[in-house]
């Protein structure tokens, strides 16, 4: 029996899907919660006739941890890169979108740094990456330059002629001033994809973001709807339709699982993957996913603080 919640080609099944690095992942997205709507909102960036010639663009994925922000942005970047290429081909242009993923910087820009320190560090690495991957028309001269506002506004003029950038920013801290800074500095031919888990704080900034030079598109993600549990389960299960050894879910058990308390898509994936992993390891694997089985699983997973 296989674990239907395993992600092909990905060692850690709890990591966000990423079609940019593995195109197969594009088929694994499931329309739960608000993801479909959020994705469509993102697509509207290209529908209006920006074409990145007049200005930049920005999207901010908003939702708590495990709500699927990173996976959604991966999907957006993948889609946009292909869409730009398709449109360029149709228009006989050479425009190419390059994805610059700066999320590896998360550890270098901890929350304890001030917002300007974070922005400047990110910007420095952006320039270094562009230089190294030869997306700049001229070699980057001022390596010591750390002030984002002296670099970002002039970036469009320094890019190679047909380049468009999709920049994936590290997640924000609880202070999200940096989003306002980026929204004001994004040059044309650059799309910035940001994410924040501080939903409450974002409201305090919404007025300033709406007045920014580039008004960001908000991609809001929430907890699962009652029907999402079953939908998620079935789509994963159906990918192994012929495998009879996979335990089926008892009626209503998934609806119960996602409504017993507000549940995120990440939590659901984590629980289901763990459950099937558990089932697989047993000498006599269960035939059905029941409430009791799930309850047992929770008890075994929540033995914090001893008394086993």
């Amino acid at each position: 029996m296989t674990n239907p919640f395993d992600i092909p080609g990905q060692r850690d099944p709890l990591k966000p899907l990423n079609p940019v690095t593995d195109a197969h992942h594009d088929d694994l997205f499931i329309d739960v919660d608000n993801t479909k709507q959020a994705f469509e909102e993102f697509q509207s960036i290209l529908d209006t006739d920006y074409a990145f010639e007049r200005g930049g663009a920005m999207a901010i994925a908003v939702g708590d941890r495990q709500f699927g922000k990173t996976a959604l942005l991966n999907r957006c970047a993948y889609w946009m890169q292909r869409e730009i290429k398709a449109r360029a081909t149709a228009a006989r242009k050479k425009t190419t979108a390059h994805i610059i993923d700066l999320r590896f910087l998360a550890g270098d820009v901890p929350a304890a740094l001030t917002a300007p320190e974070r922005v400047n560090t990110v910007c420095h690495h952006l320039m270094k990456k562009l230089h190294d991957s030869r997306h700049l028309a001229q070699p980057w001269q001022d390596e010591g330059q750390r002030e984002a506002n002296l670099v970002l506004p002039y970036l469009a003029d320094k890019l190679t002629r047909d380049a468009v950038l999709i920049v994936m920013l590290p997640p924000t801290a609880d202070v999200i001033d940096e989003l306002v800074v980026y929204a004001n500095l994004i040059p044309k031919r650059v799309v910035m994809l940001a994410e924040t888990s501080f939903v409450g704080r974002l409201e305090e900034y919404s007025a300033r973001l709406k007045r920014a030079a580039t008004v960001p598109v908000f991609l809001r993600l929430g907890v699962l709807r009652p029907e999402d549990g079953e939908k998620f389960f079935n789509q994963r299960r159906d990918r192994h339709a012929s495998d009879r050894s996979i335990a089926e879910a008892a009626p209503e058990v998934l609806r119960w699982l996602v409504t017993v308390k507000p549940t995120s898509v990440g939590e659901l994936q984590q629980v289901l993957y763990g459950l099937y992993d558990d089932v697989l390891r047993r000498r006599s694997p269960a035939q059905q996913l029941t409430r009791d089985l799930i309850a047992d699983f929770y008890i075994s997973r929540t033995r914090f603080g001893g008394d086993q």
Binding site: D64, R65, D174, V199, S264
Partner: peptide, 12 residues
């Protein structure tokens, strides 16, 4: 951490 709970909202 272990249950993958929505940390930011909880801390807020």
């Amino acid at each position: 951490e272990a249950l993958g709970l929505p940390e930011s909202g909880l801390i807020e």
